[in-house]
Amino acid sequence: MTFVLTWLATLLLVALPLPLVMAPYLPHWPVLFVAWWALFQNHRLSMTLLFIAAVPFDVLYGTVLGLHSLLFALVAYMLTLLGARIRQVNWVRQSVVVFLVLGIAALVGYWARTLTGYDPDLLVLMMQAAIGAILWSPVRIVYGWLSQFVSEPVEGTH
């Protein structure tokens, strides 16, 4: 239930009608969603679930199908391995680690977009990673709150 709720919340954030010029300054919400799940509830995730959950984001963004599945798998892998070490550290350190993971995901995203005929700007992707890391703490709190809302409290989110 928490997964569906947080997934729908992320879909709504991505589907918000905003001016085209704002796009470079928006965080990559779906990757933050996966980061939260990989850090705090990875025992309830599966690779198939992530693969399926990623497809609507590709459709909403208009990106090639499979791009978000790739990013989700990478972020989930890295943060699940790091999870035990960074789950309890303060929010600043956690944001730094999240930035590094999002930065690696941005590099892979850059490669994948180039592979499919796009001409992305790495600086914009890294800026999105930085904005995502800055917003990590509020995102973590909101997802934690959503989790509590459906009576599934999560360790280490408060």
Binding site: N42, S46, L67, L74, L81, A112
Partner: peptide, 24 residues
């Protein structure tokens, strides 16, 4: 669990990445 052991995790990651790139 998603990644219970590092080696299993790596295998699952490789499979997922392969599927994702093939889809792309």
């Amino acid at each position: 669990p998603l990644f219970s052991q590092t080696s299993v995790a790596a295998v699952r990651l490789v499979i997922a990445v392969t599927f994702a790139v093939a889809t792309m």
